[in-house]
Design a protein around this nucleic acid. Sequence first.
DNA 1: TATTGTTATACTCTATAACTATA
DNA 2: TATAGTTATAGAGTATAACAATA
Lengths: 163, 163
Amino acid sequence: MNVGDPVQVPKTSPETSAERLRDTDLANEIEFMTARARSVGSGRANSMLAGLDLRVRSYSVLSLACSGQNPSQRELANFLSLDPSQIVALVDLLENRGAVTREQDPRDRRSKVIVATPGGRELYLQAAAVIQDAEDQSLRDLSPTEREQLRSLLRRIAFETAE
Amino acid sequence: MNVGDPVQVPKTSPETSAERLRDTDLANEIEFMTARARSVGSGRANSMLAGLDLRVRSYSVLSLACSGQNPSQRELANFLSLDPSQIVALVDLLENRGAVTREQDPRDRRSKVIVATPGGRELYLQAAAVIQDAEDQSLRDLSPTEREQLRSLLRRIAFETAE
DNA sequence: TATTGTTATACTCTATAACTATA
DNA sequence: TATAGTTATAGAGTATAACAATA
């Protein structure tokens, strides 16, 4: 087909037009599908977290603050693949609403360990339930076995590069 | 453990500190792993596409323009989950470098069909090879069978909601 | 000299509303 | 009136550089 040829598109309804594009090379690329799954998933998670005045990024920090692992800001930055300066803003946000505190690491006074307050833990419990609902929606077409398959495969590509 | 308790973190090297956070609830959430896989994947893809002066978003539009499906801008917006105004900017970019053209849909003069020029098709061939390399890197720890499993599972969660 | 947290800045991505031309 | 493309704008996400305190 040449570029100058007259455009001939089978007349379709708006609903089927996107179906048509699912048969393209792009739609079968892992990078594309991953990006699309994330777009759908985080969009849904953000909407569902709005009632708690959280977003996925602040939820992530809160979750790690509740993990019992006592992460420093630097560790949060590394693990969440965010710049340390972004962690500052996220921790500020959570600290201002009383959900977490910055505690001095007695072994290194440069480092600040982020821990959740009792209120922060309560907030996290609610948020974790919301995220569980969001995940159930994302995975609603998959069987329990398939969900674990996907989790296992995703883990291997999500954590391969940066540690 | 109470919030006021002294912070006790096992002294670890920077490399193992992030390992430690992989045992948290957050790290096992589908939403989180998907977001992280996308972050790693699209970051790598953007880096590798830089030599062709493309990014994943402009590559996506170019790819669909080369698909033979003659998508309209509206169809691109729907399929790529982007606002129509973003498509304008992306098509402008590709049109200005001679990779695609806007062609009037003879059946609806409001609609513009995006088709690749011969130069655009040549650019796409190079870019598609780059994306293939990027995908191979993302999936390097998976067997061929596992890659197809992941592709199949991802497809079912990526295309479930919007059509 | 190197690292942690911080501030500042700019660029990309995303979301929304309003306008025009066609249907 | 409804839809396709466009323009404009604001907010969220990402990346980089520089600085003070500490190691």
